[in-house]
Design a protein around this nucleic acid. Sequence first.
DNA 1: TATCCAAGGTAAGTT
DNA 2: AACTTACCTTGGATA
Length: 308
Amino acid sequence: MERGAIDVGSLDGPFDLQATLESGQSYLWTREDERAYETDGAHGGDHTYHTVVPPIDGVNDQREVVRVRQRGGVQEGTLEWESTTDATPILTHLLRLDDDLDAILARTPDDPLFERASEAYEGMRLVRDPPFSCLVSFICSAQMRVHRIHGMQRRLEATYGEPIDFEGERYHAFPTPKRLAEASEAALRDLSLGYRAPYVKRTARMVAEGETRPERAADMAYESAREWLTRFVGVGQKVADCVALFSLDFLEAVPLDTWIRSVIADRYPDCDRGGYVETSRAIRERFGGPIAGYTQTYVFHHLRSGGE
DNA sequence: TATCCAAGGTAAGTT
DNA sequence: AACTTACCTTGGATA
């Protein structure tokens, strides 16, 4: 067992672990003192979270357990971690601690809605989820509430994920493409995936059989990447944007979900161009171009947690 | 207590 | 290419 701490003050800009992990971006972490995230706008808490990380190119070369909590605030606090390995590079990768948040926020729009959102969730960062897990979790997100999406991922892990024992506890990795491809549709439905069950199975099979992998979109231009990602079953433009933004480093991606669409209708009607592609371009420009995805995530979380 | 409805959409079938 | 519709499940609202 290794343990360590990351000094938040050493980062470029603040960091809020709870706001980052409970803002509906990632469904791959579990809060230890809670069955499921309430996600009612919580931030600044000192809860402990854990995840099991798959091998990530240039970061770690085997599965690792990581537990982390934040102490002492979003400006000068520390991130205390325990892991099967040195978790500093892993956390830096997964939680985008390498982003210069001050510089990014300086590029967001001068807009009252965004001002309120960024004040309410100071230190919220985007995540950088592992691609396959991100893809599956957002396929599951269709027409589903946030805490239920989270529950589906936990059941997938418990049922099909490789177990790893750490400090007397048993953790489960996210299932491999092979395991999900081998699962029966009925078994996946038993985990309450509903009509998403065959989507997950077929997408997993595409990856397991080596046909293609979501990572391949990372080297493409943004709009090409989004279009390309829709080849996976259960992935349309919106889910493709989520994978682009929350996993593949396309910070310009703005997923057009029902919340953002209602914001567009209410506050930026000139950006509603009818189709996804054109509306996406317009709102991306309004939200800050290259960092529009950061703006989207603050606005989304703010609205979803009751702000207006 | 029973019923109804909508939830971070997508695929497949029509016009 | 643009427009409908069906699709699993279930917590929370309404009667």
